[in-house]
Design a protein around this nucleic acid. Structure first.
Lengths: 188, 188
DNA sequence: CCGTGCATGTAATTCGTTACATGATTCC
DNA sequence: GGAATCATGTAACGAATTACATGCACGG
């Protein structure tokens, strides 16, 4: 098993490909960009880096060697580059498709089943609010950063915007559907 | 903290709301329905059920009490019902929006950055293939099951179909964009 | 009586989370 | 020199995964 195995490992390998970074710099990326759902916590990053180093996928160059708290800069090794290549070249599987946006739809379904149509609509309104706030935010990020981004990153960001816009459209249609449908009794 | 905390806990509470089930029955649901990305492994389900029982959210009725391997049927307690209500009623947060479909886009972005435009297109083709196979499958499930489903579940399923169709459209547009764009040199 | 499916669990390992602890640098 | 920020880690804990172990029920 020469390839990094967790999503966090993969994200780190990808980021280190662009340029060598310290653990702290990686934390900042995870905290401040749309990669925000990867953990920016030291308890995840530093063990992950140690792991990748043990696996030979990254190398660390230590600065301030004599210091009690030396800074390290991590860069991809050739094995790490190979692992990154294997990861991005692997075919897209069915499982990867299934995960997207699952959890939130589950909440919606159970809202209706456990609390009835009114709760389902309330949930949809909350979803709508969150999306209506998030989409312009993403668009702003997109507009600000698109110029300095490679084509793939720009397309991915635009795909994210489109996806959330599509969701928003679905939410609004779903609300209308519930309005139109005969009210079911509240369960529970 | 009276509410179940993990996604699996929530999924179990929601399923038990509909009807009491055994651990094995829950496993089958996770294995055979679009809830497929929750673990159907005994090492996840049974500890989760034990946890929920400790928290007082579910109760177990034991059949074959004298057997060495008694069957249990789990049902929601009133506290469990309350926890379910709280979960589905909680507002949708920004974090819930961010997670959707992240990992796969990351692979796409890094494919271009690490291997260049040709690899990015290859990735998109793989993505396209997977989606083109999955969407009709979902549609078939939808067509077969829609009649016997409550409105919310049907809408959620249709939303999933629409979302994946939107993705597919994006993938095809992205491929065209890469065709049109001047070829960048292969990095690495 | 033997295999297949139903059914419940445990053990080892690994990863992520939260909270904590510590040191170095920079700017006022 | 004190505060904020940069920077690196550890400890305790919870949860998921894989692999394993066990037992019951039924049909051929």
């Amino acid at each position: 098993m020469t390839s990094g195995s967790t999503p966090l490992d993969h994200a780190i390998l990808g980021l280190l490909h662009k340029e060598p970074r310290s653990g702290y710099a990686l934390r900042k990326v995870f905290a401040e960009t749309p990669l925000s759902h990867y953990s920016d916590s030291p308890g995840a990053i530093y063990p992950a880096l140690a792991r990748l180093r043990r696996m030979g996928l990254v190398t660390a160059t230590v600065q301030n060697r004599q210091s009690l708290r030396p800074r390290q800069e991590f860069r991809l090794s050739s094995a790490g580059l190979k692992a990154l290549h294997e990861w991005v070249s692997a075919p897209v599987t069915r499982e990867e498709l299934t995960g997207a946006g699952e959890a939130i739809m589950l909440r919606f379904v159970f809202a209706e089943q456990a609390l009835g149509a009114a709760a389902a609509v309330a949930f949809l309104r909350s979803y709508e609010r969150a999306l209506a706030a998030y989409v312009p935010e993403l668009e702003a990020y997109c507009a600000a950063a698109a110029g300095s981004m490679p084509l793939g990153a720009r397309l991915a960001l635009q795909g994210g915007v489109a996806s959330h816009r599509g969701r928003l459209k679905w939410v609004r249609e779903a609300i209308r559907e519930f309005r139109g449908a005969p009210h079911e009794r509240k369960a529970g």
